[in-house]
Design a protein around this nucleic acid. Structure first.
Length: 614
RNA sequence: GGUCCCGUAGCUCAACUGGAUAGAGCACCUGACUUCUAAUCAGGGGGUUGGGGGUUCGAGUCCUCCCGGGAUCGCCA
């Protein structure tokens, strides 16, 4: 590792992970114990135990599959449990009989207004208004901590993402991976995991030699020579200042000199310059890495050898010859003996080469060493975020981690699909050659980091994403970024109006508001959506799918806008009730709760909530 | 040919990892602005979840075989 000294202060350093890692500051975590669905599920389980005690259900039934969920159709009630259907078979009873008995017991709980058997044996529950008012009170009490969970139990998770080659600025495809990885990391932190954000610098392969040669050409150019950029070099303008700086610092000492003289030094300076560029790009997007890990640091330090030694000790390394790929007829294929990793022992389809026929390492070898290092650093879980073009790499990487950790450490690989750009209603094809290369910087300059981030998270990671410059800027319901921001801004607008009217709307006052005022269906619908937040967060974290947060925020905003508009026909639903501070404060308490959850959700996505729309 | 991802309303996508009559937005039709910003809201039509078979009380979701699209397949990283 070298050449870190000219970097602006305050940015993360490339660190040697053997010496230490940039430990993220432990922030105090407030977790909320409010999860209504968990509460009601607990109630269902105790009721089932009562039925066992009473001899209605046989002893020894497993309740693990019993769920309490919001029904898809709100007409079915507030919550539904599948208990009767799940237990019917093992209990040897009809689902309806179990459901009826369960409904009777549940109906005695003051929280349950009605318990109705429906469909094949679902039990639909309706909850009392004061339960929902209690949820609202909880949101206000917990504030920013509402929805935080300790499900991660402090487990140490390493999220590796971006890891773009240090050969140029980040482009749109990298942007998606960056946003996804960062939001996923935040989501895991929010759910009680100890998260490390990490970037693997591919500074050990041939492409950094290409970079160095390209910079060398720019260096000659800066000294007044005519240069041409042959195939296999990077002609991008972004290397001009790097070459110029080199000419300024070194003068003409490298002119007409062979590569052996200048390559190594130029390469080091160039990759440093590119990493500075990339770091600045990431910062503009709001992404801050904890660790930058250099591939180069694995070479010549015995680390690759150590990882291979570990696998050798496990009997997973051998010399052999691979079969040619079936069906495909590679003209120049000829059998070669090379060092292979027996990845088939850990779920891969074929064994994988770790040494080329000339004895040098394949790309896989340092990556094995890198993941060995992650395992050695004591992470309980690893997540790699790759572009979809690395899909073929997943199985061997999982096999490697499984082997290196003896199956202890799970590796989840999330692939981000391609981003299709649209401009003026037409697909915009990127081409390095034609100079129509859209960088992360282009996108942020045009639409801003917030809109970029939110939009990139409105698709599942493994679905292709359309990024339409016009749509992302559009101020309409069609644009979720705007729609959610607008809801948050409307809440702030209410507070501004309240201040003008002289109605107290500070948090302490609103926390003490009489929430029994909140009893209209449109209002309770908003509260019910708020009640789903803790559950949504846990599902999103369990599946490593931050896009769920974006979709949820859209739904919450929709409920809020619906309530807002009901105020047109029903003035008593307006948030501000002139001349009635108590009522206004109860309704503002609801508005505050909405903004709290929107802020928390946007926070996970790395988006700043809007105070007003302009 | 092998492997992985995808296929859901005219279009763009969800569907809480197996739950009820598969949901949103756009587009189309109808209605609501002397308002706490209508940049919003309410209602309507629109589906054999690519196709067949299987497992299950129950399948868009799991298994299997096809069809179509994309990515990838020893010495690029």
């Amino acid at each position: 590792m070298k050449g870190c000294s000219d970097r602006p202060p305050g940015l993360p350093r490339v660190i040697d992970p053997r010496v230490g890692r940039a430990t993220p500051a432990k922030r105090p975590k407030r977790t909320s114990d409010m999860n209504l669905f968990a509460d009601i599920r607990a109630l269902v389980l105790t009721s089932l135990e009562t039925m066992t005690t009473n001899g209605i259900l046989p002893e020894g039934l497993a309740f693990a599959n019993v769920t309490v969920e919001p029904p898809r159709d709100r007409a079915h009630g507030d919550m539904a449990t599948n208990a009767a259907m799940v237990l019917a078979k093992p209990a040897g009873l009809k689902p309806r009989d179990i459901a009826v008995g369960l409904a009777e017991i549940l109906g005695k709980d003051p929280r349950i207004v009605s318990a109705e058997v429906a469909g094949p044996g679902f039990l639909n529950l309706r909850l009392a208004n004061d339960v929902w008012q209690g949820v609202l009170g909880h949101v206000l009490k917990d504030g920013a901590g509402y929805g935080r969970s300790d499900m991660g139990a402090g487990k140490r998770v390493n999220v590796e993402f971006v890891s773009a080659n240090p050969t140029g600025p980040l482009h749109v495809g990298h942007t998606r991976g960056a946003v996804f990885g960062d939001a996923l990391a935040s989501l895991l932190a929010y759910t009680g995991h100890d998260v490390t954000r990490e970037y693997y610098i591919n500074d050990g392969g041939g492409q950094v030699d290409v970079l160095a040669r390209s910079v060398y050409l720019r260096y000659l150019e800066a000294l007044g020579q005519e240069v041409a950029f042959p195939d296999g070099t990077y002609p991008g303008d972004y290397l001009i200042p790097v070459g110029a700086k080199l000419a300024e610092d070194k003068g003409d000492i490298w002119v007409d000199q062979p590569e052996s003289i200048w390559l190594e030094e130029v390469r080091a300076l160039s990759t440093d310059a590119m990493m500075d560029l990339i770091r600045a790009d990431l910062k503009a997007l709001g992404v801050e890495m904890d660790v930058f890990y250099s591939e180069k640091s694995l070479y010549g330090t015995g680390r690759i050898e150590a990882a291979i030694k570990d696998l050798t000790a496990k009997g997973l390394i051998y010399r052999g010859t691979l079969e040619p790929p079936k069906g495909r007829a590679p003209e120049d294929w000829e059998p070669r003996e090379q060092m292979l990793f027996k990845s088939t022992e850990h779920g891969d389809d074929v064994d994988r080469p770790i040494q080329k026929s000339d004895g040098s390492w394949t790309y896989f070898a340092p990556d094995i060493a890198y993941h060995f290092d992650k395992v050695s650093r004591g992470f309980d879980q690893l997540i790699d975020v790759f572009g979809a073009d690395h899909g073929g790499y997943v199985k061997r990487m999982k096999a490697a981690v499984s082997a290196l950790s003896d199956g202890r450490v799970p590796l989840d690989v999330k692939l981000t699909q391609l981003v299709k750009l649209w401009k003026g209603g037409k697909e915009f094809k990127m081409s390095k050659r034609a100079g129509t290369f859209v960088t992360l910087r282009d996108v942020i300059d045009r639409v801003g980091a917030d809109a970029t981030r939110f939009h990139m998270l409105t698709r599942k990671n493994d679905a292709p994403l359309d990024f339409d410059f016009d749509k992302v800027m559009e101020q309409s319901r069609d644009n979720p970024v705007f729609y959610v921001q607008y809801a948050h801004a409307r809440v702030q607008s209410v507070f501004r109006r309240a201040a003008e009217a002289g109605t107290a709307s500070d948090k302490a006052t609103l926390k003490g508001a009489d929430l029994t005022e909140i009893d209209h269906e449109a209002e309770l619908n908003v509260v019910k959506k708020l009640a789903e937040w803790p559950r949504l967060i846990e599902v999103a974290a369990r599946t490593n799918e931050p896009h769920r947060v974006a979709f949820y925020l859209y739904e919450l905003a929709a409920e809020f806008h619906a309530l807002w508009n009901r105020g047109n026909e029903l003035p008593e639903l307006r948030f501000l009730q002139p001349g009635d501070d108590a009522k206004s404060q109860a309704k503002m308490a609801l508005a505050l709760a909405v903004s709290v959850v929107i802020s928390a959700g946007l926070g996970i996505l790395g988006v700043t909530p809007a105070q007003e729309m302009r």
